[in-house]
Design a protein around this nucleic acid. Sequence first.
DNA 1: ACACCTTCGTTCGAATTTGAACAACAGGAG
DNA 2: CTCCTGTTGTTCAAATTCGAACGAAGGTGT
Lengths: 158, 158
Amino acid sequence: MPSLNEPRWLDQDEMAAWRGFVAASNLLNRRLERQLKEDSGLSHTQYEILVHLSGAPAGSLRMTELAEKLITSKSGLTYQVTQLERMGLVGRRSCPSDVRGVFAELTDQGREALRQAAPGHVALVRELLIDVLSREQLAVLAEGLGEVSARLRLDDRA
Amino acid sequence: MPSLNEPRWLDQDEMAAWRGFVAASNLLNRRLERQLKEDSGLSHTQYEILVHLSGAPAGSLRMTELAEKLITSKSGLTYQVTQLERMGLVGRRSCPSDVRGVFAELTDQGREALRQAAPGHVALVRELLIDVLSREQLAVLAEGLGEVSARLRLDDRA
DNA sequence: ACACCTTCGTTCGAATTTGAACAACAGGAG
DNA sequence: CTCCTGTTGTTCAAATTCGAACGAAGGTGT
């Protein structure tokens, strides 16, 4: 019988899932990072910032909101937005309704950089992940990991 | 008809799978990192080093081999092994058959640290990922991401 | 108006990561 | 043996990341 002091270790299947997840994640990050840097001079983080801004109304988001979407620290975002600002891809604009607030805003040049970087990035994501999996596998992955993410986000608020 | 110049963007399902994967990965890393650091004073990377050494014959592995298992750079591993050496959890031993070679070797103290850190870590992995998914979802995840990882590893060799 | 608690974004120092360059060595072809 | 190519682990500088501390506002209750 299971002891309360003895933890429930992962069985073979569980371990395979966990290791596969970690390995795929690390390997994918490595590849995408390299490709983006060589192809567009952008880091994956920077690319994601452009993507999220691009998908937001007026191409702008509050710093805190953007940090949450990116799942990164506020200080980390401050750093990266500064970098993107120097590259001319993003601008800062103060918030009318809140003096403390800062909007990160996509510039025309930023939109253009994203338009230029996106095809290569998407193609690689497709080649390395999406097209390797079947439609059913993708669906299971979306639902399962969606649920995992949702729970983690809730926990973080608490 | 699809143009050769126009990339195949991700449809809704594909995007959901991709975003879920990235989000789950980042959120999980954040959580595990925090838990391990608070609970055992180890980073996730350091913990993984101990795990891989623990699962190797004589509790030791060549630096390059270990770096590949961890999916990290050689220089990064050098740094972390040095840290673990200072903590007394890992030792370095030169390789008999190859003067250049270096074995990273788990010390008794390292084994003890792992034994102490593992239960909490595994429990959290279980709570946040494994136990959230059904048996079928786990199987799909293991097989799908296993295949993805395998292909990525092959590509890296080339 | 006042005190109180929260939120916002930045700054700071410390830790980590990476790729390139490097020196030393291994292994094979000639 | 000797040259050549590939490997091994480390060092180095640069970039990035995080958490804690911070100053400045917001917002609420009294």
